[in-house]
């Protein structure tokens, strides 16, 4: 009994300390933003490895999700004789929810874990320490460009996901299932509002981008510099990112799409 309480207390204290470290870390990372924006090459190199290399994964996933939405949506809507509204269903689901959320989860798995592993490994091989001794701030030099790249890539990837998904829904709905092409697009356009839906979707993906990338780089930087430590940190980064994304999704959805 006493052991359990002790453990609980220790875990709580460790978590609080970790949160504190994570926040101080974020401030440190952000302080290097201006310098990195001036050294564009570092940023573009990271946008390549974090963003460009995720395109294939996001596009293919988006396509399949859109197509499945088309199929499933058609099934549900035909019970109500409302097949014409397939376009609305597919687009709304994607733009408001699936685009930002699924992209964030995939991003955490692919790019997030890669970032954690890379940074953890740099820590384990003393590269970060070496930079310190060379009078280069490793956080500003290595972490900040990766963080910015992640935050900037997320909305782009989420939009890509939604676009490809809508096209997938179109192929399935109009191409395969015979929904009227005109109805597909016009219903969609009259029901999806740029501000409420598109912009909110972008805001969501920005928030997710910050959260996922922050967790990924922090876990890498905080990892125990052994092979086991790095591997655990990588797993933690993906798991915590998933929780954080879904949690924030709830909060943001309630704020944005709740009844006004």
């Amino acid at each position: 009994m006493r052991k359990t309480l002790e453990n609980l207390g220790r875990v709580t204290l460790d978590t609080v300390k970790k949160l504190g470290r994570a926040n101080l870390f974020l401030l440190h990372v952000l302080s290097g933003t201006l310098a990195i924006l001036l050294r564009f090459r570092l940023l573009t190199a990271q946008m390549y490895s974090v963003g460009v290399l995720s395109i294939l994964l996001i596009a293919v996933s988006g396509l399949f999700v859109g197509m499945v939405l088309g199929l499933q949506g058609f099934n549900v809507l035909s019970d109500f004789g409302a097949e014409e509204s397939l376009g609305v269903m597919v687009a709304a689901s994607l733009v408001r929810e699936l685009g930002p959320v699924v992209t964030a989860l995939l991003f955490a798995g692919r790019a997030g874990s890669a970032l954690t592993a890379e940074i953890g490994l740099m820590k384990a091989t003393e590269q970060l320490s070496g930079m310190e001794m060379m009078a280069v701030d490793p956080v500003k030099r290595v972490i900040t460009p990766r963080f910015l790249a992640g935050v900037l890539s997320m909305p782009l990837l989420a939009s890509l996901f939604s676009m490809v998904g809508v096209m997938g829904g179109f192929f399935v709905g109009v191409g395969l299932l015979g929904v009227d092409e005109g109805a597909f697009w016009t219903q969609m356009r009259s029901h999806l509002d740029f501000e409420d839906d598109i912009i909110n979707g972008v805001i969501k993906s920005l928030v997710f981008g910050v959260v996922v990338t922050w967790i990924a780089v922090f876990e890498g930087h905080d990892a125990i510099p052994t092979s086991e430590g790095v591997s655990r940190a990588t797993t933690r980064s993906v798991v915590y990112s998933a929780f954080a994304v879904l949690g924030w999704d709830f909060v943001l959805t309630a704020l944005m799409f709740g009844e006004d």
Binding site: M47, P155, L160, S162, M163, V166, F194, I198, G201
Partner: peptide, 20 residues
């Protein structure tokens, strides 16, 4: 190209999908 693709996607969503 990546950034352009992302912007195009956003544009697509804005124009074809919503009522912008």
């Amino acid at each position: 190209a990546f950034v352009a693709l992302g912007v195009v996607a956003l544009f697509f969503l804005a124009m074809k999908v919503s009522n912008l």
